[in-house]
Design a protein around this nucleic acid. Sequence first.
DNA 1: GTCTATATGTCGATAGAC
DNA 2: GTCTATCGACATATAGAC
Lengths: 196, 196
Amino acid sequence: MASPLKTKQILEGARQEFLSQGFAGATVDRIAANAGVSKATIYSHFQGKEGLFKAIVEQLAQQRFQVFEVPKEQSADPRKFLRNLSLHFLEEKSEDQEFRAFQRMLIGESERFPYISKTFIEAFIQPALQWLTTYLSENPLVVVKDPEAVARVFFGALVHFALVQELLNGKELLPLERDRLVDSLIDLIIPPGTEA
Amino acid sequence: MASPLKTKQILEGARQEFLSQGFAGATVDRIAANAGVSKATIYSHFQGKEGLFKAIVEQLAQQRFQVFEVPKEQSADPRKFLRNLSLHFLEEKSEDQEFRAFQRMLIGESERFPYISKTFIEAFIQPALQWLTTYLSENPLVVVKDPEAVARVFFGALVHFALVQELLNGKELLPLERDRLVDSLIDLIIPPGTEA
DNA sequence: GTCTATATGTCGATAGAC
DNA sequence: GTCTATCGACATATAGAC
């Protein structure tokens, strides 16, 4: 009842269509054309448009956006370490066109399909905040009163910057170098001159 | 060629429909029904669905979301002042259902309709950052090295918190009191014990 | 100016041939 | 299993009566 090759083709075509058009704007006709299969084949592999949409969301959340990568080798200096981490994060997520499209779809459809935001939070936001909270708690060179809240400030400042600059085309209207944001952010979390 | 009353009714109906359904999901039939007019009337007042959409966006950006309110009476203590301002901002924007819907639509449609994000940045984000930057620069009790970047951190942390908690239903999966976020944020920007 | 009625196209989904 | 061909519903947009 299911051919693995065709299934893969359908998912590939559906990902492009849903990410670029949203759920309501996407059409099964275009998905079929992108995938190189007929519409009937799609309906034999998935339970309609919404079932396909759900499959795409889970695939993206679990396969592409699950990992919040932290370098194995942590620099001894927390300031340098967090600075590199932040710049790497901003650069990577800003350049990742598919990630940007996923964020757009995520927020745009989160009212109609709450499981999207749930999936994304559990796969991406939750682990990132968890790791940051632990790092801010356990590193002896870092002193913060409420690591969980500070982790939110840190992560929020980075994500919001990427969101405004890249998703909302803020680069042109509100130009600001990544380095300036990150440097100020690090200075706030770990004031300079706190080296061991 | 245009009746002011009908125009108002159409805009009212269109706002509800576009905010709840997005551009692709909205139908002119429902807008006409909501407005209590016929479809033909809509097409005589506006240039099709997209023209109506554009009118809605401009109306919302200019009439509802333009003002970033700052209390006239600024407390002498910057920590207290920014704390009240932040909590007021979070409370107001979190409760404002129409603002949440607008953010969703804004981000969801920003690729297909770039003027939406441009309008929102100019009406809302730009003034807020401007005011914050000025405040952080000119208040003698506040010392920050790069006010423009710190304003981004401040605003970004608040907006991202509201976005995750309210738009993405993070309240349930990642519970965190507003006070804890705001208190930590203020402590980072203006360390306690910096009173005059 | 605003309506009813309709033109014209595309949507999601399926039946039936192979 | 996968296709072609097609269904009914509904989309945007307009013509013509009043």
